[in-house]
Design a protein around this nucleic acid. Sequence first.
DNA 1: ACTTGTGAAGCATTTCACAGCC
DNA 2: GGCTGTGAAATGCTTCACAAGT
Lengths: 223, 223
Amino acid sequence: MRPASDKIPQPTLSRLTLYLRCLRRLAREGVNTISSAKMEAHCGIVPAQIRKDLSYFGEFGKPGAGYDVQHLLARLTEIMQLDREQRIAIIGAGNLGAALAGYAGFAQSPFRIVGIFDNNFNKIGRMLWNHEILDLQRLSEINQHMRANIGIIAVPAEAAQEVADQLLKSGVSAILNFAPTLIEVPPDVAVRNVDLTRELEVLCYHLDRLTSSPQDASPNDDQ
Amino acid sequence: MRPASDKIPQPTLSRLTLYLRCLRRLAREGVNTISSAKMEAHCGIVPAQIRKDLSYFGEFGKPGAGYDVQHLLARLTEIMQLDREQRIAIIGAGNLGAALAGYAGFAQSPFRIVGIFDNNFNKIGRMLWNHEILDLQRLSEINQHMRANIGIIAVPAEAAQEVADQLLKSGVSAILNFAPTLIEVPPDVAVRNVDLTRELEVLCYHLDRLTSSPQDASPNDDQ
DNA sequence: ACTTGTGAAGCATTTCACAGCC
DNA sequence: GGCTGTGAAATGCTTCACAAGT
């Protein structure tokens, strides 16, 4: 085992979230133990990769038996910091921001949307789901008590950089950026980009080049 | 130069879409020529990487001068098959499907949403933006004249695999999957996954491990 | 008998560094 | 002088294969 914060490959972190999803289902189904080989059937990652990924964080398995589902689930949840509430501010109350705000998948998750912001005066004050749309100008001020640590950027590309800057000034230290542009942040801030158009464009490249084209598992990924 | 379909690294394809975005802006701004070094300032990719990426597809640059913006833009657009209309079917008229259907970014793009499908009888027949929501049961039949070649899955995880199967039966050969589950498809089908929860979970890992954490450029990411 | 954890090998991608061209 | 295209080196990630544990 290594001291856990050595330096973990990004693809490993991305796969860890996949293992978590599997383990949650296995736990729900009452499975007690699982081997890396059986896990492959559930998540599509080859056993050697699963073992290597887990080995970055400790020795969780029992030779001859495999992994204890509950225990591994608990440890990975802790490692990914999903054992505590994670507070999200959504910036942009357009189509996408509204869809994200209403995403049902957050219900039994550590993610909690604590605020939705926009700079459009026609939207500020209106309700979106059960949230009042707040004035983007007041982000820093409001986040002093709101204490979101994750920001989701769902604004047009032109506004993304400025929104990112404001998020960081407000104390957010991780950003999920849906705007179709790269944002620049200091190196101590984590950013992930989700870019619809780029994904579609990559798909187009593969069209009608069908023979032996490979697949993807979101690396940036990212896939 | 290589025969263009040798085997292109996925990260290269993903970056190509970034170069395209830059080139479109440069073209709009009237810039005639750009070197890989100046390009770095616009897209954040190091010059050697840009040159290597482009070299997979041909020799587009002039030593001493750089790349002709218009010419490179035209060639990359062609290579990515963005010089022709690409027809998209969206499956799922929930929050996300509706947001995607209304995405303004498709306006001046080769992407055209040709149909939105759902299996909920309360939604079928209603209008979403300027599209009637169609019966998912009739996907194959309708797509015979609709001729979508790209499918976007915006349904709950439980339904994703079945929707994927139906899309493929309907003649679609590339899929953008927003459902939080892996879908299995034959190897001649291109799939990209966009998974909100996984992205957020990866961000959580980085929280409060701020010192010297790296960034991402969506290779799935994609990181 | 079965399975883990892990060095070492293998493969993929990025970066270097420079010959050649404008 | 400035820039490209590209072999070769460096880095990063995945897979192999096996000793060790149960």
